[in-house]
């Protein structure tokens, strides 16, 4: 299978910056996979995300989305339609004052037939569990609900890839759970490729693959089971480890012999139970 996104040795420096925000990043993302991107503040995560739908074009190297070169102006709309992007602050992504009108914004821009827009809007709202709220005013919704409306707003373009840049950073724990559950369902059940940028390790644990950025380079790349046991390396990159891993390593330091790749709370509990018996 061909990768849906192929990044070949890209670098990028902001016009008024003295050091590159991305510095020789290469990466292939396979269709239908769930990739989490980690990294401390200023490591280049958002810059990388903006290269995935041609908001930024690399200064050196190439980005291909479904075979299309992002540097080619003619591909712009096709690429943006293919790669939906969701940002941190849901308030600043919603354009209309009725939920369903907002979700219709993207397909309207694409010139889709009115009947087909209606179908896509309903489907997108249902797939994030916001269909009952279609007539509501966005400013009266909770943070998690607004963010799910924002996700529906890009799903209505019928994209193959969903890029989320810290979508849960402004949400309370409940809103975070709602949003992550919706994203996981889209990936696992509808086969949408997900790239999730996050500071929350418990969200990254659910991914198929974890990338860690530092100073514009990919420094770690592997499955969560390969990445998270490397507690020393993660701490050197100013990242925390998931609570489960922290617990295991403390128990191990206290003399137990537990596996470090039991990442979800359930796996962790099972591993501890087994060791105790």
């Amino acid at each position: 299978m061909d990768p849906i996104i192929r990044i070949k040795n890209i670098s990028y420096t902001y016009p008024d910056a003295d050091r590159p925000a991305l510095d020789g990043v290469s990466l292939d993302i396979m269709p239908g996979t769930f990739t989490a991107v980690l990294g401390s503040n200023g490591s280049g995560k958002s810059t990388l995300a903006k290269h995935l739908n041609a908001i930024l074009v690399p200064a050196g190297g190439k980005v291909f989305v479904d075979g299309m070169d992002t540097a080619d102006e003619g591909n712009l709309l096709a690429i943006r339609r293919q790669v939906g992007m969701v940002f941190q602050n849901p308030d600043n992504q919603i354009v209309a004052n009725v939920v369903e009108d907002d979700v219709a914004f993207a397909p309207e821009n694409l010139g889709v037939e009115p009947k087909e827009i209606r179908r896509r809007v309903d489907e997108a709202l249902k797939s994030v569990g916001m269909y009952e709220f279609r007539m509501h005013a966005p400013h009266l919704l909770s943070g998690g609900q607004k963010q799910r409306v924002a996700i529906a707003g890009v799903l209505a373009m019928d994209p193959d890839v969903l890029v989320l840049d810290e979508p849960t950073a402004m949400l309370d724990p409940r809103g975070r759970r709602e949003v992550i559950a919706a994203v996981e369902t889209l990936c696992r059940e509808r086969g949408i490729t997900v790239v999730l940028i996050t500071h929350h390790m418990d969200e990254a644990v659910r991914a198929d693959r974890v990338l860690v950025l530092d100073k514009g380079r990919i420094v770690l790349d592997g499955t969560p089971q390969q990445i998270f046991p490397q507690t020393a390396a993660l701490q050197a990159l100013r990242l925390t480890v998931p609570d489960t891993v922290a617990l295991m390593s403390r128990l191990n330091a206290a003399g137990m012999d537990l596996p470090m790749d039991a990442l979800t709370p359930a796996e962790c509990a099972a591993a501890i139970l087994e060791a105790l018996q």
């Binding site: 354009v95 369903e100 914004f105």
Partner: peptide, 23 residues
């Protein structure tokens, strides 16, 4: 600024060729 970026990501490129859901 953020809204403009979000609109661009949702394929906004002016009124030309736009359709409407509610006629």
């Amino acid at each position: 600024d953020e809204l403009a970026l979000a609109m661009e990501c949702r394929c906004y490129n002016g009124g030309e060729g736009r359709t409407r859901m509610k006629q």
